[in-house]
Amino acid sequence: MATAPAAAPGQTRTPAGPGPGSGGGRGSTRARGVRPRPLFARANIPAGAASLIWLLIVLVPLWCMLSWSVQSRDGFLDNGPLSLPRQLTSGNLTTVLEGGFTNAFVNTVIVTVVSVALTLVCAVPAAYAVVRSTSRFVAGAFSVFLLGLAIPAQAVIIPVYLMIVRMGLYDTKAAIILPTVAFGLPFAVLILAGSLRDVPGENYEAMTLDGAGPMRTLWSLVIPMSRGSIVAVGIYAALQAWNGFLFPLILTQSEEQQILTLNLWNFQTEYGVNVPGLMTAVLLSAAPVFIAYVLARRWIVAGLAGLGGK
């Protein structure tokens, strides 16, 4: 019945297609039709009011973040939490950058880029095999992947720690990347396989008639046809890596390997009372995601749809 928001870009062959949150969906098409739907003919006051209240609940903390981050510590304490900042300062930026933020930022970028690449390199061929292979082994593997969907990462963190230590990977970026990718793979394969199932069998046959083997089919049919899902899966993997906390917390230790989420937490423990500084750090850490959201909201929402309750 209901199709996931993630399905939209997955099935849309061009990025110009209507995305899940873009307002171009069926709902608004319908509303623009000749006969307006009775449901929407009059304003839904209770739901509208609830949405307004929720919007406030969402926006007030975000407003505080923004307004606190541009005030000095003393200014913020005098001013009170909700009022407009009287004197703007960029001093917090200096404090944050001195706290190892730049190093953590670079580490997070590396971890994220490698995680996305590794996820796609593993998941795209696997999805192709799941949909097109006749091997029983692959079908069995797919069922096992499905089981992995809801295994909480916390539940296996102790053996992962043991293994990472024994492999000599403790306190390296690989220690963060490998488990992060492993736990993101079930969802990635699932989404990609789903979009590949919508490719008609004739297309594969045509490739074979042209003399293409599986490898060329992968390159010239599978990847172009699932471009939308590949982007969604990539964004999902990027968000998981960028916002990850548990694996870096347990599997790294040194400041040199620290990533952003841990840097933020560290900042709070070290400079507990410097709330404006902390807000600046939080905003800076989320800035790439915010910018991406502004530029490509539809794709980010599609990628987010994979975040699950985790």
């Binding site: 061929p125 696997a126 292979s133 488990p179 990718v181 492993a182 089919t217």
Partner: peptide, 24 residues
């Protein structure tokens, strides 16, 4: 059409197996 072998799924199974199934 030509069928991909199980080999195509091996990288994913390897990463998932080692870092998610074995710990389980």
């Amino acid at each position: 059409a030509a069928r991909p072998g199980a080999l195509y799924a091996v990288p994913a199974i390897l990463v998932f197996g080692v870092f998610a199934l074995v710990p389980l």
